[in-house]
Amino acid sequence: MADTGQQHPISVYFWIWALLFVFSAASYMVDYLAFQGYTRWTLIIIFMMLKAGFIVAIFMHMRWERVALITAIMVPPGALLVLVGLMAMESDYTWLTRVVYLGADPAPVPLPPPSH
């Protein structure tokens, strides 16, 4: 089975490489500029998905695979979305019970790290 694999111009890789740098820098800036709340989350998730998408699509060559392989790999993680979603609900609920019944502080503030 010689050399039937993925063969693409090197320039594509350089492009993606550069893009990943840009997106990483961008998501770093989200923290540096201290965006908070929904803006922060939206930006973080967008940049994360973009980076993940390009790594999978180009570096791992998913874009050039046949639909059979793409679906076989991309569909099963759907089960994980169910897990994550339900666990998020569950965690909110547990937290609520801790605040309501155990008198926990709903908005605690962390101490700064000792070395600063």
């Binding site: 998020a88 937290w95 801790r98 605690p108 101490l111």
Partner: peptide
């Protein structure tokens, strides 16, 4: 998400 302690920044 469940902890009632503060999360370090």
């Amino acid at each position: 998400m469940t902890t009632a302690e503060p999360w370090p920044n």
